[in-house]
Design a protein around this nucleic acid. Structure first.
Lengths: 240, 240
DNA sequence: CATTAACGTTGATAAAAATCAATTATTGCC
DNA sequence: GGCAATAATTGATTTTTATCAACGTTAATG
């Protein structure tokens, strides 16, 4: 049973989705798009809303989440620069099933639904890329489900630290430990546990020298150790 | 907050995916396909395997699941007649991320990878339908994740009974209560709990008159009661 | 730059769920 | 139809995780 952390298994593949498009298609998308600045904490779209277009995250970070009747919030994904948001509901022709909100100051380009669909329907390059991306998402989701259903909270905390470590990598310092900067509440909602349980486990990891923290910022000190705690297994590569 | 059970939120939409295809496309798929009988318990494909084509479930039921390092098995979906299987890995060009096995005697048509992709790339009708289907799957998965992360085992047992009730509906008797016929182990692996916990909760529902059972077969007696136990919220409809 | 509201941490306790162990049903098979 | 073998159930117990309550810290804001 292979072991190790393969960030690919937890990441959607929308980065570079518009690469390889014809100049005409790109122009049509560009002409229709508008870019806005979002402050930390702003909502991009809301569960139940009618999708009017898709969003391209130029800069910043966005959490995707779903709220429950009881007010709980499940964060199931964190988008980083270069990722696309909100296309599922446009494709499925349904209301947004989830909400999206910035977790840091961000810059987001909006492409109206009609323009996106026109380009999509005209471009087999784009539709094939999107099909490939969506096929990959399936594997990301079943990983997420399996981990939620079978791993302990401790294992899930470790796993999510690894996922976030990738997301908070800075271009300048690829090698340095990332500075994971997320509220404890968001982290707990991502792990699927109570905030207090999350804090206690972070405290343990800290005592064991696996991580350090400074205010809300978390740094992984011993990645192998965290990988061990996450108890990973499986992971598969490209075929063709 | 709207409440009620919307089975659509838990079902993929591959049924009828080949409707509306040109006669030529259908012919090309048909020429390439082979149909096999599978006995209950047979494996259709296995996690880590190389996808050589897609499967169309003509008759029977198939569980989709992932196994963990510790030998646990997470069942994340049950396919019924008319559904497509194994297309994600073909689209993503990755190994199978999950396994599929029949849970009753089944009849499955296999379409080789190349033939499927040729038809897909030639048919914008099919690729658009598939994009729509995959967009919908996203909402199914985030529902599943949110439920796993935020609901109690009791709530999840009730919810999965509702999901299975739909899957075990018989064409003859749409109105009659379904006969849910699945091993307690599979059920527990679907709910994401220990078999013993599942059994105890079924026992409670039985005492409360919400269900009845005869051997392994479960029948819902009071659907509203089970919906109440599942504590559902949300659910959104088509837009356009 | 002081304030204060939001956020984070810790401790004590309760609740939920898993595990272990033993027994009883069921079902596939000859 | 009887007989293993497999699956389901029940009870006792432990472990894990959530909840409640109090207090400390941080950082956003005027």
């Amino acid at each position: 049973m292979p072991t190790g952390f393969r960030s690919d298994s937890f990441r959607f593949n929308t980065k570079g989705i518009f690469e390889g498009l014809s100049a005409e298609s790109l122009q049509r998308l560009d002409d229709a798009s508008v870019t806005h600045l979002y402050k930390k904490g702003e909502i991009v779209f809301r569960e139940g809303g009618i999708p009017s277009g898709i969003f391209y995250l130029l800069k910043g970070k966005v959490k995707k989440y779903k709220t429950t009747g009881k007010g709980a919030e499940q964060v199931f994904y964190v988008c980083t620069a270069g990722e696309l948001l909100g296309y599922h509901a446009v494709l499925s022709e349904e209301h947004y099933p989830d909400s999206a909100a910035t977790i840091e100051d961000s810059e987001i380009t909006f492409i109206p639904r009609e323009n996106f669909l026109n380009v999509l329907h005209a471009s087999s390059v784009l539709s094939n890329k999107l099909l490939k991306t969506l096929g990959h998402e399936f594997s990301v989701f079943i990983n997420a489900i399996t981990n939620l259903a079978t791993k302990s909270v401790r294992e899930r905390v470790a796993l999510n630290l690894l996922i976030l470590d990738e997301k908070f990598k800075r271009e300048e310092k690829q090698e340095a430990a990332s500075e994971i900067n997320m509220s404890r509440t968001d982290l707990a909602n991502m792990v699927g546990t109570a905030k207090e349980s999350l804090v206690r486990l972070l405290q343990q990891f800290k005592i064991e020298g696996l991580i350090e923290s400074n205010g809300r910022i978390i740094r992984i000190l011993n990645k192998k150790g965290i990988i061990r705690e996450a108890n990973l297994s499986g992971g598969h590569q490209k075929v063709f």
